[in-house]
Design a protein around this nucleic acid. Structure first.
Lengths: 202, 202
DNA sequence: GGCCGATGTTAGTCATCATTAACGTTACCG
DNA sequence: CGGTAACGTTAATGATGACTAACATCGGCC
């Protein structure tokens, strides 16, 4: 089945099962880790049992690969689109923050899996995912470079990772605050953390 | 080197094996997850092969439990000690930040395992670990309440988790900056993030 | 010099699990 | 209608892995 180009949808929407499986698997992987979840578990979570999964994915690792590839692509593409649309660096940073916060609040499981399970993705796909992650980080670093010149790339990269850690803490404080309030809290904290007057002295 | 009785010999140092195993296991668990590491792997990492581990721990889960219990205890006890020693809330927060940053920089693997693998700890120990974690968080929330009155407990708790995420990002930006610089960067970012003027308006 | 406790070793054992095989069941399409 | 493709199902199959058993080694100590 190379190039399934006909949009003729048989009965059920083509691939609706795939999405359902990916969604259920994300939750399970986030909760118990890739190796802590069996094919049976995933099947049970979508109502079918066990090996039915092989009708949709070539294997467990392929499923994970697709999941992480999709996340990386969504983050990178929406990030880069909104950066190029932004009028200035200030606005670009706001867009990036908005992107990441929205994703972290709406898809905590994907965020969790995304930064834990790269090591279980087989090699062909792993490189592509890593590349997208790196591009996404560089997007941030570039914007921050413009906004805070005089700070080293290394420092900005470390700061970016720190902000990711801050924003991606949502799975840990689930339900403490209403989402809108949480979003504003995270945005404020992230902006303040990034604006810290560098680290030269002392 | 034959039959020298001082404990300086490379042969064995009483009780060092347990610590060695815990250390090696921490690195492996952090890298591949609890279920991604076999007893054989852990044995190999300390030079002995396989089931030798059962001379020191009653099982794989018990090993994990001891590891996490130790981390939780160290964080909580050093945190609470230094808070009670502090002259004021300002100083207490500095101490807490110092604690956490020092731990995150010196033991990234333990930090990683600590917030990923609680779910694999069997029930008797899990409760104790969770309790210590909660106490540690409350330590932070109490100090922050005093420092920033008028902000809700829930908001401060969420902010605390966010700062943990920020500080615990060290495993992701390994080696970008020299440790001392990294420490100051993290401290500055955390302080700035916490000082953000609340979330009331809008 | 001979017991002993601490520590390893190698060869099972028994589960669990990913993956495959072999075999329905629909629903659409000609 | 009959074919067929999408989608499931229940049994193998073959690895891997946690844990146990039976058997060393070796230093210390009476």
């Amino acid at each position: 089945m190379r190039g399934v180009t006909t949009d003729r949808t048989p009965t059920r929407v083509r691939g609706s099962r795939r999405a359902e499986i990916l969604d259920a698997a994300a939750g399970l992987f986030a909760a118990r880790g890739f190796h802590g979840v069996s094919i049976e578990d995933i099947g049970a979570a979508v109502g079918t049992s066990g090996p039915a999964l092989y009708r949709h994915f070539s294997g467990k690792e392929a499923l994970l690969a697709e999941m992480l590839l999709d996340v990386s692509e969504r983050l990178h593409s929406s990030g880069s689109r909104r950066v190029t649309e932004a009028a200035d660096a200030e606005e670009a940073l706001d867009s990036l923050l908005g992107c990441q916060i929205e994703f972290a609040l709406n898809h905590p499981a994907l965020i969790t899996v995304h930064d834990r399970e790269l090591g279980n993705v087989p090699e062909p796909a792993r490189r592509r995912i890593r590349r997208l992650q790196r591009l996404y980080v560089e997007e941030w670093v570039t914007v921050l470079s413009e906004l805070y010149p005089g700070r080293s790339q290394a420092s900005l990269r470390a700061a970016t990772h720190a902000v990711f850690g801050l924003l991606n803490s949502t799975p840990h404080s689930a339900g403490e605050l209403p989402p809108a309030v949480m979003a504003e809290l995270l945005r404020g904290m992230a902006r303040a953390a990034l604006a810290v007057p560098s680290v030269r002295n002392r």
